[in-house]
Write a protein that binds this DNA or RNA. Structure first.
Lengths: 350, 350
DNA sequence: GTTCTAAAAGACACCGGTGTCAAAAGCAAG
DNA sequence: CTTGCTTTTGACACCGGTGTCTTTTAGAAC
């Protein structure tokens, strides 16, 4: 409650004020702030009391200058999907809420040939203690190397491990997709279509591999006409739907690599008078809000993005704090995705 | 291209290096950096050349300390909606891309009784040059006053003007809602339902006023059973839909205060076997991705959130730069929303 | 009570800029 | 060539912390 006790001058108290009040040197106060070990318990108590009395908060700008590090965590992303970015942000904030850190958000342009220069400049200027790279830019090895070279801790977020554990937070998409598709097969589906994510995205490749693994396990094949390219956009789903549902022998089920495209496929099905799930089962990926906003609600794979955000932030913080880093190192950097069954899946007709 | 010319020592050049190379004092270099007017053209040129040669970039932490201001813009929000926040961010970044500013994102908890203390602490620590308040927290006058008291420029974003022009960016939701509802009436609808946003939200009130204005203009009334409360969530839309579509005399059209709830209403309609738009016309608000991901695509009101983000950032920057502030002052702080017609509206049956 | 050593505290420079005010330079008038 | 201004430039303190090295203090051993 005493957010600003001792604010007599209207100015914020500085380390000098604290030092004067406690009757010690500013360096000693600095030691208390930074939890130095070479300080007697008695002194620590009296300094702490002075800090509390004055409501002293160390000036982050001054610390940043002296430390040559800003107490910030940077989030670099290429806006793959608003919901993803924001959920991730939320997770990061869950983790840093009680620390002194703040979150700096930096969208970048994956396609720009100045990408590396941009990021370098940004990191050199802001000097965050760490950076988090969201897919798809997390897949850029040059970017990760750049962070390392600049002495910025980094964490790469992905659908599968992209780096060694201390630089990586990922999910197990491949397995979960295989599990979901396995359920379609168990229900009796034999003609199952696949709509892929964009070329060059690791996430797209993981999902495809999971899909193919499930088919292979059941001895099924994937005919060309049931394989559609895509780009994670709604319109790609519409195109894929148009193509597959116009076939003489259309699929009885489709796995679509994200919810947005799945919504596109579903709207084509509706347009053709097909019933979902009776005539066509659909599974998406992301568990985006769209999944529950469409009708029928979409069975999908939930990607634990918020948890990954927390985990990524904790990794950076632990790494920054050094010795106590073990806490985070013990955690498994693979966070499980989960298959969520809703109303868009049923056994095939007949 | 010469992102780091002269990086011989591996270290970044400082103002002292520039001063030495140019043969002037560091203060003179500082004057060049800050575009001071009391400097001869000759000196400026030679200093600028030294800056370019060394690839000097002023250290933001040092400047922040000396200026008592961080070159950051803070975005305070209460995560009303991921898409909104991220689009706004995008707009902000469009505006500050080429400046020295960075974006600091700070989610806050509207309900917390420590809200003001939290924000105060945040602003005192980070000392951004300005803050942007997204709805619904932009409606909190105490928060705005706090910014003012702390010497932080601020802009409040809303559905209608919340403050004087220099502190405000808004849209004209009321008018556009009235226009949209007017079109329903023009098509022949007479029983038109309304699903409201949460109590206490200015945006919800604006939309309701626009709705009622349109009815009034046509001499129509709004019976109690066609008025549903809501909270901008999908489930509220479902509840409102259940209620209205179970009436003996259901509405032939509904205006729903956001897209997410509109999706809820639509799914109830589908569940009851009603055809949209033949049996029920629906209009939403936001033009969120959901609007085009549901079937049929939702007619809705596009809220120019990205443009508002740009505008808000430009206002802060112009204000910060002082004299050149006129550029932004000339702009109208009201950005137009627009009604977007898709497939969810048709004349009533019969 | 000394002496020795490790722990604790302090002095002072430094991080990399800006503010203030005095000094130097430039130029017109006398 | 001075004098009297105004315009430019520089010296130096300062923003609020931390790093380094030195001095002081405290406790153990003699």
């Amino acid at each position: 409650m005493a957010a600003r006790a001792g604010g007599q001058g209207g100015k914020q108290p500085t380390i000098n004020d604290v030092a004067a009040l406690a009757g010690v040197s500013k360096k000693t106060v600095s030691r208390v702030i930074n939890r130095s070990e070479f300080i007697s318990e008695k002194t620590r108590k009296s300094v702490q009391q002075a800090i509390d009395t004055l409501g002293f908060v160390p000036n982050p700008q001054a610390r940043a200058l002296a430390f040559r590090r800003n107490f910030l965590i940077a989030l670099l992303h290429d806006n793959p999907n608003a919901q993803t970015v924001l959920n991730f942000q939320q997770g990061v904030l869950d983790a840093i809420k009680d620390s002194d850190l703040a979150l700096l958000v930096r969208p970048v342009d994956r396609g720009s040939d100045k990408l590396l220069d941009d990021v370098r400049l940004f990191l050199e200027k802001q000097r965050p203690i760490g950076a988090m790279l969201l897919p798809p830019i997390s897949e850029n090895d040059d970017l990760a190397k750049l962070c390392g070279d600049l002495g910025v801790r980094y964490v790469r977020v992905g659908s599968a491990p992209l780096d060694d554990a201390r630089h990586c937070v990922s999910s197990n998409d491949r397995e979960v997709v295989a599990e979901a598709v396995g359920k379609l097969i168990a229900l009796g589906h034999r003609r199952i279509g696949f709509v892929r994510g964009p070329a060059g995205f690791r996430s797209a490749a993981e999902r495809e591999e999971g899909f193919r693994a499930a088919l292979a396990a059941a001895g099924l094949s994937l005919p060309d006409e049931l394989y559609a390219p895509g780009n994670y956009r709604y319109t790609a789903g519409v195109e894929a739907g148009e193509a597959m549902l116009s076939l003489k022998e259309p699929p009885t089920a489709v796995f679509v690599s994200n919810d947005e495209m799945a919504a596109g496929v579903m709207s084509v099905a509706h347009g053709k008078g097909l019933s979902v799930p009776a005539d066509l089962s659909i599974i998406g990926f992301d568990d985006s809000p769209t999944a529950t906003h469409i009708w029928p609600a979409l069975s999908t794979v939930r990607w634990p993005i918020r948890e990954m955000g927390s985990r990524a932030a904790r990794t950076l913080v632990a790494d920054f704090l050094g010795s106590s880093a073990k806490a985070a190192d013990d955690e498994n950097p693979v966070m499980p995705s989960t298959f969520i069954e809703r109303q868009s899946v049923a056994p095939p007709r007949g």
